[in-house]
Amino acid sequence: MNLRYEQQMKKGVLEMLVLNLLSETEKYGYQLIMELRDKSRGIFTLKEGTLYPILYRLEDDGLVVSRWSKPSGKEVSRKYYKITETGISELAELRKLWEDFSANVFLTLGDSK
């Protein structure tokens, strides 16, 4: 399969997946990359160059907020991202959209057989 098609398809759901991970608790970049990889069984193995622009866009749109943690002991300062109330509402809408979207994609694929 053409890798470009696969990447294009994945790109459409990344914001929703990141928001979903952040709806559990605040997380930092590396943690998001690892959790996304593990939960998707390797399908969504993001690189920093893909994840951070998504986080910045979500922050610019007011869907997440960030804070730098204070370094304690051996732990370095990290930038944590947290979902906002607007982000929670947006995630709910995106989930609904995804359900309609995927159902209709399946329907269309089924019809075309």
Binding site: Y28, G29, Y30, Q31, I33, M34, K47, E48, Y52, V76, S77, R78, K79
Partner: peptide, 28 residues
């Protein structure tokens, strides 16, 4: 900002047991 985040990501990866070679290879 990106520079600081990359530094902390690398540090987190090293703390999780990755070597610098693994990290740089993964990042590209």
């Amino acid at each position: 900002e990106i520079g600081k985040e990359l530094q902390t990501d690398i540090q987190s990866a090293l703390e999780q047991g990755e070597t610098w070679e693994d990290v740089s290879l993964r990042m590209g």
